[in-house]
Design a protein around this nucleic acid. Structure first.
Length: 764
DNA sequence: ATCAAGGCTTTTTTT
DNA sequence: AAGCCTTGAT
């Protein structure tokens, strides 16, 4: 049991205490993941069957990594049956086995946020409500929080307080929308994200034998990031653990940042109430960060009223002070931060992956992307518009979904007229009306006009019937044909592939390539699950629906600068962290500024951001930035003031001379702390030019053995070819002297060139 | 039914 | 700044 040796005393007791209810409060960087991993491995070493363990993590990636690590300790075979994943993915699978009990098909669709929103929108329209008052987004928020608190449409309608709130906000009929929305999801055989938890609760409530079965199966339950669970999740766990009470929850109240999604610190208190004889362990030693970072973070979080007192400390070095950089504009912020990354990377011989840029909102990524691109620095953005949210990907997936579940209304609406088939809005509106009249799904009307006569002319009916027949042929093959073959056939037969291939604009080419990539993903899935019985296209869909950006990290994403929101950075760590956009009304967000509890959540968010850093943390803010397409003047964030000043070092890209009269920060005396305007470098024309040059050298620093004029290229480079003109490198393969590059030339399309022969001039 | 143009809202944060 | 929706012409 040598793995126990690597643990400190408090970690070790938390690992070795297996039975009964346990709560572990784990400070940032205190080895929480380590404890969870070793705890599970230890349980298995002590003879507990992995079949009886349920471990709920916050991301699928975390689950995968933990499972891998456990396999290394106890062996693949032992770890095989471990139920480990996010609440959503674990219970989505559980629901698949039990869906029919609830009246859902076993291959129910999972509606993503877009689907939910679009359905809510059409419900609002059908109820003839004004979407100025009933904004789909906020109505969805209302419905979502009802579901997360397990309030059914009926309970919602009968709850005087809730309906009162809606009346006050001039949206008295939300209860009707809720009812109708749920009804429609049900008819479509679809569950939204919240349903995956809500319906699990219904299942465990209404089917005692099912509850009993899973109580026996999951005798040992572990929950990571417990502070971010909502009521619905809390109750699932409570029910499953009710018999054996072998439940271990791990969390940190100081890192609770998901209350907008219904997460509730109350769950920590509930735990104490539900299991009065529970054992509490605290992990307070931080192994991740320097003393400066730990102490600075502590000095911030202590401003919060709501918190469990703890003393996070570290034995690590003091380390550098936290830099505070002030810039004029958001574009300048982009340049300064990326230049700083470049200089530190070169100066210390680090990897790109040692750096992360963290921001409050996704929209802030733009200026950093631009600067990184200009300097040819590789980066990866997490969140924002992910691969699976791209239109072309969603289109093809919608075809998959509709093949697996004909009643999937959102998928149907998405693809019925794409590619163009001459089935327009008017036709679809008639179908929707008819479907409601007959109380059936759209698909049923469309597949049997004799039985459900409606106001659709003969030519449109014909087109629809053709479509229906095509879809039926896919459905028939769903369980007969391997996932990849069927996916390929769907992409071709529907005309999707052809339509995209005809589009020769760069965007069109990218879309086509994305489709190819999705198909490759299906193939990969087919291979990975070759021996499983869950390897059909509809099984692929469950995986895809709950997949996030972090989950499909490829190998070549490994050495890149990371750009993400602070929310997405939870649980991660980087040697060098840049927290940017520290301005009032941005961070803390404008919407949080009037409520203490929300402001405290922003502060916890800031705490999370700082504590991602191992060695170095840099904060930045700007004087004016573009928001809403308008230039906004901003003031530095109160959070900067909240850090004990002894940990800070102020740098500015400009001097106050000339601006001092107008500076908003003068009031708080922040201006006087900045010195030495040139110190950050990277802004004078000279310094910019120097950097750029250094960078080019870096790129060709691995000498090419090709002997040709072309040195090392990277994807994304702009190049010039004698015959094909200007182009952009989209892929590289092989190594010198046989290295090949795929280049997209706007004039002639994609070409794969052998670098040895092709005379490419690098333009960047 | 389709397409282009112009106007409009939008931003927290995510499974 | 960008995507989405409405409008109006064909």
């Amino acid at each position: 049991m040598d793995y126990l040796e690597g643990l400190n005393k408090s970690q070790r007791v938390a690992v070795e205490h297996i039975d009964g209810p346990i709560m572990v409060i784990a400070g940032a960087g205190s080895g929480k993941t380590r404890v969870l991993t070793y705890r599970i491995a230890h349980m298995m070493n002590r003879g507990i069957d992995s079949f009886n363990i349920l471990a709920l993590t916050f991301t699928n990636k975390a689950a995968r990594e933990m499972k891998e690590r456990i396999s290394q300790i106890v062996g693949d075979q032992e770890a095989k049956n471990l139920a480990m994943g996010t609440f959503h993915s674990v219970f989505a699978k559980l629901l698949r086995y039990n869906a029919e009990k609830l009246g859902y098909p076993s291959n129910f669709t999972i509606y993503d946020t877009q689907d939910s929103r679009s359905l809510i929108k059409s419900v609002i329209k059908e109820l003839k409500l004004d979407d100025k008052d009933y904004k789909p987004n906020s109505v969805h928020g209302r419905i979502s929080s009802a579901k997360n608190n397990l309030i059914s449409p009926e309970e919602y309608a009968n709850n005087a307080e809730i309906v009162g709130e809606d009346r006050m906000s001039k949206r008295p009929l939300i209860y009707q929308i809720y009812k109708m929305y749920m009804d429609r999801c049900f008819k479509a055989g679809a569950m939204d994200f919240d349903d995956l938890l809500y319906q699990t609760n219904v299942l465990l409530r209404d089917f005692p034998e099912v509850l009993h079965h899973y109580q026996q199966k999951f005798r040992y339950i572990l929950v990571d990031e417990y502070q971010d669970t909502n009521y619905s999740q809390y109750l699932i766990v409570k029910k499953l653990a009710a018999v054996y009470e072998n439940i271990c929850v791990v969390g940190d109240d100081a890192q609770s940042i998901y209350s907008f999604r219904g997460a509730n610190i109350q769950n920590i208190l509930n735990f104490k109430r539900d299991y009065p004889d529970f054992t509490l362990y605290k992990l307070e030693q931080n192994y991740r960060s320097t003393k400066t970072i730990v102490d600075a973070a502590n000095s911030v979080i202590e401003k919060n009223q709501d918190q469990i007192k703890k003393n996070v400390w570290t034995d690590n070095n003091q380390g550098d002070k936290i830099r505070v950089i002030r810039c004029l504009t958001d574009n300048e912020e982009g340049k300064v931060i990326t230049n700083s990354i470049y200089e530190i990377k070169q100066g210390q011989g680090l990897q790109y992956s040692d750096f992360a840029i963290l921001y409050r909102t996704n929209a802030q990524s733009r200026s950093f992307e631009e600067s990184l691109r200009k300097l040819n620095m590789p980066y990866k953005i997490y969140g924002g518009l992910s691969f699976y949210q791209r239109k072309e990907i969603k289109d093809l997936i919608a075809y998959f979904r509709l093949s697996a579940n004909s009643n999937d209304e959102e998928a149907l609406k998405r693809v019925i007229n794409y590619p163009k088939r001459g089935i327009g809005n008017t036709t679809m509106e008639h179908i929707i009306i008819a479907a409601q009249q007959y109380d059936v799904s759209l698909w049923e009307v469309m597949s049997d006009f004799n039985r459900y006569p409606c106001n659709v002319n003969a030519s449109a009916q014909k087109k629809i019937s053709d479509f229906v027949r095509m879809m039926q042929s896919f459905t028939a093959d769903l369980d007969r044909v391997p996932a990849f073959d069927l996916a390929q056939r769907i992409a071709t037969t529907t005309g999707l592939l052809k339509t995209l291939h005809e589009d020769k604009t760069p965007e069109g080419v990218t879309r086509y390539e994305n489709i190819q990539e999705l198909l490759a993903g299906v193939k990969e899935f087919s291979i990975a699950n070759k021996n499983s019985e869950n390897n059909s296209l509809s099984d692929f869909l469950i995986d895809v629906a709950l997949m996030t950006d972090a989950d499909d990290e490829s190998e070549d994403d490994k050495n890149k600068v990371t750009l993400m929101t602070i929310h997405a950075s939870k649980g991660l760590e980087f040697p060098h962290v840049y927290v940017v956009g520290l301005e009032e009304n941005l961070f803390p967000s404008q919407l949080s500024i009037n409520s203490r509890t929300e402001l405290e959540e922003e502060r916890r968010l800031f705490y999370v951001a700082i504590t991602r850093a191992e060695k170095n943390c840099t904060l930045s803010y700007v004087q004016s930035r573009f928001r809403f397409g308008q230039l906004i003047t901003s003031e530095s964030s109160r959070f900067i003031d909240e850090i004990d000043e002894q940990f800070l070092n102020f740098e500015s890209t400009y001097s106050d001379k000339g601006t001092s009269g107008r500076s908003l920060n003068a009031r708080r005396g922040l201006d006087s702390k900045f010195s030495n305007p040139a110190a950050t470098g990277g802004l004078s024309g000279l310094s910019q030019r120097r950097l750029k040059k250094v960078n080019v050298n870096d790129i060709s620093s691995t000498p090419s053995k090709s002997g040709g004029t072309t040195t090392d290229l990277k994807v994304g480079f702009n190049v010039m070819h004698d015959r094909f003109g200007k182009g952009r490198v989209t892929a590289l393969e092989g190594t010198a002297p046989n290295q090949k590059a795929t280049v997209f030339f706007p004039r002639v399309g994609n070409k794969t060139l052998i670098l040895k022969f092709a005379k490419l001039e690098v333009l960047d």
